[in-house]
Design a protein around this nucleic acid. Structure first.
Lengths: 359, 359
DNA sequence: CAACCGCGTGATAGCGCTGTCAATATCGCT
DNA sequence: AGCGATATTGACAGCGCTATCACGCGGTTG
């Protein structure tokens, strides 16, 4: 019947309270909000806790208070640098706060996401950060059942579950293509790998721009369902050249691919940008270091993570969230790889960064 | 006095038990180990749980059982691709298991690490994965207090806290330099950024090799305490050229720097490898795609994460861990950037990969 | 044929903490 | 001095689950 009694040497709230000469509940209050305890007891409790090496038991706290300080974060990939930047923003924002992060990797699968959400539910998370808009109906139900603030990141869409922060991939790609068109490019190819929902929307932006210019040609599009990589960029580019030998520019759905295209051009002695212009997406650090420097669409990933975290914290703590849907925008960073010297040749300095177009 | 009674509609073990016509403890047993419950009740409980949409309460479970299924993981950086590979291995290994991962970012600070370990302690983690060997004495005490299996990853050292998996950075760098020496290089530079303990040990390996060859010269070493980047690679290389104009090879403490060096060579029209050979470290994917392809030291990061996770699980579940210290080794992948054509010029095919030397 | 074993099940008593309400101490003001 | 208002503290009863022991039952053993 029942279980054996507590083992000695275990330090609970009660032990600290006994040493400090106060009741356990006062110690509890001290740890949650020191201001609610008188200064005299505060110091007594503090030194008693230190002396005993008291460590609060989070499970007991969660059970008694019926809530946790866990923020669930769901991202599709751990390897993709795009998400490491977002994650860094999230972790930095939660740094020093009382929240802890529960990170899970959906591997670009909405079913996996659903499963992981179900797991999160068991922890009664205080908040949830999920990637993109394409959750299953079931996932949305689970999220609703979690009954906590939710931020969708990376994209913008019409029906936010709760809050949302991101930018329009369609518009961003449209802007990149518009830039190439403005440079006089006409046969602009699109290469993409993995083809997750965000890349799909970039493709949409590409198609919109090309159709609007009356230059759309399906042969200019080469995609692969495999993960993106530099090597993949080279081989997709080779495929593209085969399908469209008269190519004069390539838009790459991300920077890894763009780097691969650049190397493939070097290998084939294709002059960039004179023969073929290159534009990437995400503006990874190496884009500005490449030779020639590579044009890309900059997105504020770190800021996205940071603000998503802030929005969650505000919502959890009952502060009003001014903007529940935040458009972070993007910027086309024009560099040598897509800047065709017309008239006065004027290449950018290697370390320089061309003025961007803010949309 | 006391708190208000349970709200209706809440689904607990008790509710499931009532619907299934068994006692709550049987339901508890069913969820922990279905085999201990008779087949007849198993199906009854299963359908009752599904009907009510029962979700176990992890906090209650943790409190009652005095343990959790949380594995704490401490890494120094979220942005560094090296760690994303390791993380991917860890997440993949825990995938589908009952464990969940608590990830924290030490930002290369041992004090931050200490603070985070203290936080982990509150959760009574089932296991711990920490990066490197350089924990503070205080951190080691905290880890001991956590009283759970621990794996140190990334490196190998004499005094494991518990278990360990990694490779020798000193040896790996020594091997890379030996390769350059074998190619006839004499004025081999070292460039490194961030200078965390692992990079320090690579520098040590470099010094050992150069001293052994009687070629050591402090002017050949250029480092910076800032985070590593491609751009940084270019500027450190420029510094190095200034200090040692007669340079004939560069070892880069990681691949980002190596890529930056390659670009800087292109910018300065320095022929690689004819004038200057380049060797990187980690063998990131892009190294094989570059022009020329870039030599690097391959390390099995994914495997390291995966096996660390397996070791933890074995230890937690009381299975004997065969090898408590695992050396994963490394491999110098010789590519065009460091292969000097002596006699019969025989450059590697662009997509090819030179035979590695396994140590 | 009694003693024994082991399986499946149940009753009981907490795990360590906090929500709620009550009690007391302190304070400002009329 | 007397009053209500405000800070500070405490008592109590759980939060939802599991460890532990107890028990009934069929089958095995000497």
């Amino acid at each position: 019947m029942g279980r054996k009694r507590i083992e000695p040497g275990k330090v609970r709230l009660t032990e600290v309270a006994a040493l400090a000469g106060v009741s356990p509940i006062t110690v509890s209050r001290f740890f949650r909000n020191p201001a609610t305890v008188s200064a005299a007891r505060r110091t007594r409790i503090e030194s008693a806790a230190k002396e005993l090496g008291y460590v609060p038991n989070l499970a007991a706290r969660a059970l008694a208070s019926q809530r946790t300080e866990v923020i669930g974060v769901l991202i599709p990939s751990l390897t993709n640098n795009v998400f490491s930047d977002v994650l860094r923003g999230i972790y930095d924002a939660f740094e020093g706060s009382r929240y802890s992060i529960q990170l899970a990797n959906t591997r670009y699968s909405v079913l996996q996401e659903e499963r992981l959400l179900r797991l999160f539910l068991m922890q009664k998370p205080a908040g949830l950060i999920v990637t993109g808009l394409d959750q299953t109906a079931e996932s949305r139900l689970i999220i609703q059942a979690a009954d906590c603030p939710v931020v969708q990141i990376m994209e913008l869409g019409a029906e936010p579950i709760d809050m949302m922060i991101g930018f329009s991939h369609v518009d961003a790609c449209f802007a990149a293509i518009s830039h190439l068109l403005a440079q006089g490019c006409r046969r602009i190819g699109f290469i993409g790998a993995r083809m997750d929902p965000r890349v799909q929307r970039r493709l949409q932006g590409y198609q919109n721009a090309m159709k609007e210019a009356g230059l759309f040609d399906p042969r200019l599009i080469v995609t692969a369902p495999v993960p993106t990589s530099t090597t993949m960029g080279g081989s997709l580019f080779s495929d593209l050249l085969m399908k469209a030998p008269d190519l004069d520019a390539v838009f790459c759905a991300n920077d890894d691919l763009a780097l691969g295209v650049l190397f493939e051009c070097q290998r084939r002695h294709i002059a960039v940008p004179e023969q073929i212009a290159i534009v990437g997406f995400n503006d990874m650090e190496f884009m500005a270091a490449a030779v020639p420097t590579l044009t890309s669409v900059r997105t504020n990933r770190y800021e996205m993570g940071r603000r998503a975290a802030t929005m969650i914290m505000d919502a959890v703590e009952g502060r009003p969230v001014a903007q529940r849907v935040v458009d972070l925008g993007f910027e086309v960073i024009e560099r040598q790889s897509s800047t065709l010297q017309r008239g006065t040749a004027n290449p950018q300095p290697a370390s320089g960064r061309a003025a961007g177009t803010k949309w």
